[in-house]
Design a protein around this nucleic acid. Sequence first.
DNA 1: CGTTTAACTCAACCAGCTTGAGTATTCAAG
DNA 2: CTTGAATACTCAAGCTGGTTGAGTTAAACG
Lengths: 391, 391
Amino acid sequence: MSASHRQIPGVNAERTRSHNRQMVLGSVRAAGAIGRAEIARASGLSTQAVSNIIADMLADGMLREHGRRTGGRGLPVQQYAINPSGGYGLGIEIRPNAVFSALIDLTGTTKHSHRTELTNNEPKTVLAEVAEHKFRALQDTGVRETSVLGAGVVMPGPFGATGIQNSGSDLPGWQDIDPQGLLEGALHLPVFVENDANASAMAERISGVAQGLETFAFLYFGQGLGLGLLQGGRLVSGAFGNAGEIGHIPVIAQGVPVALESCVSRLSVQAHLSAHGIDARDMDDLSRLYAQSAPPLLEWLDTAVQPFSAAIGIIENLFDPQVVILGGAMPDAVLDHLIDAVRLPDRSVSNRADRRQPRLMRGTSGRMTATLGAAALVLNQAFTPMIAASR
Amino acid sequence: MSASHRQIPGVNAERTRSHNRQMVLGSVRAAGAIGRAEIARASGLSTQAVSNIIADMLADGMLREHGRRTGGRGLPVQQYAINPSGGYGLGIEIRPNAVFSALIDLTGTTKHSHRTELTNNEPKTVLAEVAEHKFRALQDTGVRETSVLGAGVVMPGPFGATGIQNSGSDLPGWQDIDPQGLLEGALHLPVFVENDANASAMAERISGVAQGLETFAFLYFGQGLGLGLLQGGRLVSGAFGNAGEIGHIPVIAQGVPVALESCVSRLSVQAHLSAHGIDARDMDDLSRLYAQSAPPLLEWLDTAVQPFSAAIGIIENLFDPQVVILGGAMPDAVLDHLIDAVRLPDRSVSNRADRRQPRLMRGTSGRMTATLGAAALVLNQAFTPMIAASR
DNA sequence: CGTTTAACTCAACCAGCTTGAGTATTCAAG
DNA sequence: CTTGAATACTCAAGCTGGTTGAGTTAAACG
């Protein structure tokens, strides 16, 4: 959100431990079940160091024993796995007229979710509502407050004076304040604020179709169209946190240059249907129309395919992701239709001979994707150390 | 270059020291001259820790004393600055028919540069030539071998089976080998391989117009068109190292979808001029033509402006950079013309009210930009620790 | 059944950061 | 001019956390 000149922190013993704990947790998560020696080899630490960390994390309840694996030569490996109840992530999604929340455990399983309407979206009201969601999630699940590692919050963006004001989705009264600070005050938790596309990308990484992937793009159908980018497990969010505004890139439709999201987005399909006298308010309406093969919807899909294909080509060539994932507020069937209909460009860095995955996939987090993603931000933080591979 | 599953390393005392040294060097570089206490405050380390590191680096010759700064209350600050001769970066640019090299000191000043023609570009010939460049650079400057921190190497990409083979710029015989390993063997130095666009971006950060910037995009005019992306001082290079292939994104020219670089690139302008009977072999020819306001060149510029503007819009909205920088094998006057003529979209996250810098700038590294950038990769490594700010 | 292999533990060690006391130097106030 | 506050810096002891090397356990191999 803020700008450029953050100072890089130094490392001392305490931060070393924190990093190494995150590294171990990430290794266990990636492997499912793994022994100490293997983590030591992979990370370059000594077995003893890993052993000490694992003992710590067993005591904390973050890990649990997971049987011995035999078959090799020497002493059978004592394996460890993530203890689901070792920690939780709270996800909050704030929309102009509603608040959603989800509580997920360390393995990404949803333990609780909830939705309330907002009568107004002034900061005071929203903060109270958000605190109430947290209270309720803890009460309904019996999770202790100290087990919650943090809260991810998804809010309408972009923030700051960006030239894309009044895009219809922003919250009045939230322009010149510090949402993170306010939310930390209301929730008494570390708070991570992100936009819907970035959070959704994280949801797919933690509990969806992108598990095991580190570098991918997530194309998010919200009101408009957003893009979440992960490189090496970290979000690429630009200098001011507004990267991924793919909806605003210029494309040519019927010979006229327009914004991509005026052809490919929920608003766009709703406008098209509305012009044909069809009122499609939500995803269920769209699902029904698609199941009925409603001609105006198929028409819209036809017009959307070409700019959509162009967008995929742009994403692939600019980011070279392992895969592009589609998701958000669009029915699965419609997304699948787009994936089938798309004409992926041959001249793309992603069109490699040795691919194993498809270039395009549909996300599996469904309509709660942004809320789950908000919670996933917290887990990602717990699994991903600060240190990046040096080369 | 390689794929996804690199394991995150653990941190021990040794790596802690290495990180903190890089952090200190980066702080000194960013500040120009700075004292120990200030670095300690900014990094969160104790004064003593910083003091010890600085003592080390004075002994190594990386830093030098830079007078006391008085004016405040207490004891005047003993300041330190980068010692230019404390280390050097070697940059090598390999092209199908030539090898370029540059040696830069710790402050980014070019101490030596050289060019030789290649009669063939088999690995064996090229490796011998590259080693010869290193030998010559050291001999001509008197720099000791141990002072060279590493070598950056720029080679034609993209690598791997990417669907963009035979783009005319690749090196035959280099497809199925490990360039980094071979080069390290030939040079006896740590080697960083990058493409021309990424390296050029780094040149602007180390010694050009992007000093002090951490998140920006560099649009590189080579044979085609490439894009180098830095976020937080680190390259965004995608899952397979081929991010930034902006030349291949689809745009509409005269109603037909074509690759961007078929309208905006040196090949494109040369083709256009050639169709008008003008033979423009190199940048000097183009400069002359522009100075003469040659109508075919101005014509080409007119056709290029619209797709060029679209590309800038795409870059801004996908990356949210502090600035987009133009450079590479195109005369300054032509780049300036494009910057003047461009129609920057209003609907861009970069169109913010509180901007101080222009959205578009011309790079200052000139035609040696990729070679200097290769050398700059080494310095960036020395200045940028592995650890990223945690949020 | 001994040997080899591999994982793991124990205890001593070590690198590097922190802490707290002490010194040096400048400015400001009396 | 003297005294005190502020600030940078150093010294030495202490602490955290990773490393090292010897020793233990258990499975597989021959």
